[in-house]
Write a protein that binds this DNA or RNA. Structure first.
Length: 290
DNA sequence: AGCATCGTATTAGTGTGTCG
DNA sequence: CGACACACTAATACGATGCT
């Protein structure tokens, strides 16, 4: 299954929402949009083709039509067909990604008080999928209600609901995932590293702990987090170091020891690589700011 | 198709020394 | 405390392969 990945920022932007019941014999017209058109079917079946791909969107299913792709109804509705549609744009970068390639546990860096812009991340929307309509329809109804009584005071809420709606779609996508052995192993490795970041890292020790070849351990962790064991360990260490720098009076060398790095010179180098600041600079900035 | 390992080339991590 | 250079070591990437 494919997903549409929207790179954030910017957030997707709401255009309009609609609800309708199509009668038997109704066919969707042929057109090419420059926006996203999400079609959610509650009852009946909608027959849509986008490019050369035909979709039968049945009850409890939705389809996201993408900008720039010609679409048309290739078959008339056979019964009363209840649909919701949501139109939105995404002025930023987007791409199509196979579901199985997504790294749901990929570590994202937190924003800092010196970042000039928001950090980049992603939103994933399934292209065509079953969904739990009972969870989605209340949000859509709220959007319809606001749209029908739109005023200066409530307009922002439409955008909030669009985000809530897309967020629920993404959660549904995550719930639909099968828990694979590599995913389980990846989680075990994360737990292991979280419990061992204060001691020097060695692949042999990890191999003995898991009874797997290090190559396999690395592949599993990387597949789900985007990081190798050492990179993940460094991430944990740097996060702990940040806390110690701000909330303790410990010397730099003592902090290095605390996080399992015997060499403070190397710690400084690594810290700078991760944060852009030396530990001393970081401490001064954080202690001098709100 | 996914799991698991192996060999090996490449890359990144690490220790040490020096200097400001 | 922090920056930098250098050399060595360990980790990682990746294709090939076998197994279920």
């Amino acid at each position: 299954m494919n997903c549409i990945e929207l790179i954030l920022p910017p957030l997707p932007q709401f255009i309009t929402i609609g609800h309708d019941i199509w009668k038997p014999g109704n066919v969707h017209n042929s057109r090419t949009f420059h926006i996203y058109d999400l079609l959610l079917v509650v009852k009946g079946t909608l027959y849509m083709t986008e490019r050369d791909q035909a979709y039968s969107v049945g009850p409890g299913q939705f389809l996201v039509l993408e900008p720039g792709m010609a679409h048309f109804g290739h078959k008339a509705c056979e019964e009363d067909t209840e649909i919701y549609w949501v139109h939105f744009t995404h002025p930023g970068v987007s791409r199509t990604r196979p579901l199985k390639e997504l790294e749901w546990n990929r570590i994202l860096q937190q924003g800092t008080d010196v970042d000039p812009a928001p950090r980049e991340h992603s939103m994933f929307i399934p292209k065509y999928m079953n969904c739990d309509v009972s969870e989605l329809i209340p949000v859509l109804q709220s959007m319809l209600q606001i749209q029908s009584l739109l005023n200066v005071g409530n307009a922002i809420q439409l955008h909030v609901y669009l985000m809530e709606f897309l967020s629920r779609l993404q959660k549904g996508l995550q719930r639909s995932l099968k828990i694979t052995p590599s995913m389980k192993l990846s989680n075990r490795i994360k737990e292991y590293l979280a419990g061992h970041y204060t001691v020097p890292f060695q692949v042999q020790t990890m191999e003995q702990a898991f009874h797997f070849h290090i190559d396999y351990l690395t592949r599993c962790l990387k597949k789900h987090t985007g990081l190798t064991p050492l990179q993940y360990l460094h991430y944990l260490r740097m996060e702990e170091a940040k806390l110690l720098l701000v909330h303790s009076e410990l010397k730099i060398s003592a902090i290095a020891m605390e996080i399992g790095m015997e060499n403070d010179n190397y710690f400084i180098r690594l810290f700078k690589k991760h944060t852009g600041f030396t530990p001393g600079e970081y401490r001064k900035r954080r202690q001098g700011s709100v």
